[in-house]
């Protein structure tokens, strides 16, 4: 494992911790999209089915379990916690997730490495992860004001993807015969989804002001 991959994973983990801390400390999930969180849970469940039949490393197994547990913890807070769930902007978080899930599934059936249940579900999770942030970005656009923690959470999620891109370039040059087009193309799309957000995030940071999205 190279340094870019490790930095990417740690940034991903940190983004989730930031979100969980925000929810626990402020007892509020205002500005957080439950749809995006549920999509991430679907992504992790369909991708990490290999926990049952293959072992890559202790690091790999532990991280997968952490990602699964934290995804469901966040959903539990937003749906069931008696204080937190009242702060959820249900009326604003209306993205039609089936418009993401169905096309990703069809694409996974058409473009995959192997026509098996686990491989198609793994491919589906790669495609779905690329677009899973969209309900969150739409929610931000609607509510306009972005609180610092939610802004940092999304910024770290985007950074994690950017670090993975660097990791793939590194692996391409250091590992003989290493190529994975499905992951590369989806990962590039996924990183591009954040570009607009990055622009406004960096602008707010440079001007030392609270982040605002244009109407």
């Amino acid at each position: 494992m190279n340094i870019f991959r490790l930095a990417g994973d740690m940034t991903h983990l940190l983004s989730i911790i930031v979100l969980l801390l925000k929810i626990q400390a402020t007892k509020s999930c205002a500005g957080v999209s439950l749809k995006t969180q549920e999509l991430y849970a679907v992504v992790f469940v369909t991708r990490y089915l290999d926990l049952f039949y293959s072992f890559i490393s202790l690091y790999n197994t532990v991280m997968k379990i952490i990602f699964l547990l934290t995804a469901f913890t966040i959903i539990w807070y937003m749906r069931k916690h008696k204080v937190v769930c009242q702060t959820y902007d249900k009326e604003q978080d209306t993205f039609r997730v089936l418009f993401l899930i169905v096309p990703c599934f069809v694409l996974a059936l058409l473009v995959n490495h192997e026509m098996s249940v686990t491989e198609v579900l793994w491919t589906f999770s790669i495609y779905l992860e690329a677009v899973a942030i969209l309900p969150q970005l739409v929610l931000l656009q609607r509510t306009k004001n972005v609180d610092n923690l939610t802004g940092n959470y999304i910024f770290m999620l985007g950074s994690y993807r950017a670090l993975y891109l660097v990791n793939w370039v590194y692996r391409y040059f250091t590992e003989l015969g290493y190529r994975q087009w499905i992951v590369w193309v989806s990962g590039t799309v996924q990183t591009c989804v954040y570009l607009d957000f990055f622009y406004y995030y960096v602008q707010a940071w440079r001007n030392n002001e609270r982040m605002k999205l244009p109407g």
Binding site: D50, S54, N60, H113, Y164, N167, G177, V183
Partner: peptide, 10 residues
Amino acid sequence: EWHSAIHDEL
């Protein structure tokens, strides 16, 4: 080999 190399990422 190839299969495990593409599944070793999170």
